[in-house]
Design a protein around this nucleic acid. Structure first.
Lengths: 142, 142
DNA sequence: TTTTAAATTGTAATTATTACAATTTGATAC
DNA sequence: GTATCAAATTGTAATAATTACAATTTAAAA
């Protein structure tokens, strides 16, 4: 059940706590790029003594260890992604959902050649998703 | 002095107000991707009655009209860019400065083919800038 | 010059995040 | 197993960015 996450934490020599396991499991099983609020509200159901500060602390340290990554795509809150590999994101301006886009930036070399040391790359697309486009068609539809 | 910005506003059929002209001029002449706070503090010097809400309102409507763009690169505040064309940004984790990177994403077509309607593209690189790297070398230097 | 919708202002409310002190707990050594 | 201790958790309070909103002022059209 939790072995996967225990292993992850041990590999990074992080203490294994039930809160951390819950957070990792939640992020792993909910790939919608949740906010701290979402994580907190959901996990509180099974652990009413959970503190929001704990969620903040843990997503921060998990990110520092490179286990998860944070997105600044929406502008008013951080969102977290269990995936830590390089990929892009698309946010729908209608429904607010965030989609993973599996493309990698081919320009990293070019930027590094101009003297910058790159540690993170984030690609954000904003627009209307398939479903919302389809819904729009239905409503306007001839 | 301000004709350029008057023209810009008129082209978008926006009312020409001294506050808007000040904000546009400031953004045009300070390409460091300022926050609302920075804009407000600076313009307040010559116009003490300026309200921060006015700055918020105006950067929002200027962005809606596509005259300027906002960046979510830093995560805890929005930053504004007089440039509205597609380009990328690099933020230095040491000094916090944000640099313009003139490359365009070659994958837009690919994403649109999968059914998304793209309206904005943001590329963010995070790492250490040339100057901070050089400073680091000096300090460690053999 | 009058009119009116839009812009500006100031204050208050909201939301996300951080700070911090007290308590608890996981992991190590015995 | 038990003692130890640094690290994690908790709860509350503070901060920072942004939004809401009502009253006043103003740009621009008639």
């Amino acid at each position: 059940m939790f072995e996967k996450y225990v292993k992850l934490l041990r590999e990074h020599s992080m203490k294994v706590t039930p809160q951390r396991l819950d957070i990792l499991k939640y992020l792993d099983e909910h790939r919608v790029h949740p906010t701290v609020e979402m994580i907190y509200m959901e996990l509180k159901k099974n652990n009413p003594s959970l503190s929001k500060t704990t969620v903040y602390n843990n997503v921060e340290t998990l990110e520092k260890h490179g286990i998860i990554q944070s997105l600044t795509i929406s502008g008013n809150e951080l969102r977290y992604d269990f995936r830590n590999d390089m990929h892009c994101h698309f946010i729908c301006k209608r429904c607010g959902r965030i989609f993973d886009i599996d493309i990698v930036c081919p320009n990293i070399g070019k930027v590094e050649q101009s003297g910058f040391k790159i540690e993170e790359v984030h690609g954000y697309f904003k627009g209307i998703c398939r479903d919302c486009l389809k819904k729009e068609e239905m409503e306007n539809g001839s």
